[in-house]
């Protein structure tokens, strides 16, 4: 798993790429915590996610909760990778209220 931070339109973007599975879950959490602390209007780029399991989805959801707590909505930079969208779709995360906009446009079957 790789984490990259950059800025886009004045907002912090955290790009998550590679294998986002349980082995990397702790590292991903640290990365997300740090990013939210830097900019509560954090934007995620998950276009490079190659593998995703439940830990990844839970962390994204939890991040969305955190962003929502400060009055924002978790938004996305770039498209959702195929691996991420199919994991989110089959497990209902695309339909979770805090994430529907995050996954929208891509959250479809077919």
């Amino acid at each position: 798993m790789e984490l990259t931070r950059f800025e886009d339109a004045g907002k912090l973007v955290l790009a998550i790429a590679g294998k986002c599975t349980v082995e990397h879950a702790a590292a991903l959490r640290e990365g997300l915590l740090a990013a939210v602390a830097t900019d509560p209007r954090l934007v995620l780029d998950i276009s490079g996610v190659e593998e995703a399991d439940i830990t990844f989805l839970q962390l994204v959801l939890s991040t969305a909760h955190t962003v929502a707590r400060s009055g924002g909505t978790l938004t996305r930079h770039g498209p959702v990778s195929q691996a991420a969208i199919s994991a989110a779709r089959v497990s209902g995360f695309t339909q979770t209220p805090q994430l529907t906009t995050f996954f929208s446009d891509e959250g479809r079957d077919g």
Binding site: L59, V90, F93, T96
Partner: peptide
């Protein structure tokens, strides 16, 4: 085991609608 994998398998068996709910601790 990974619930996502199980659910992906179930997804191949029919028209599926999923609701994920219940507790999840805050990130921090």
């Amino acid at each position: 085991n990974d619930p996502v994998r199980l659910l992906a398998e179930l997804d191949t068996l029919g028209m599926v609608r999923v609701l994920r709910h219940g507790p999840l601790p805050a990130l921090d």
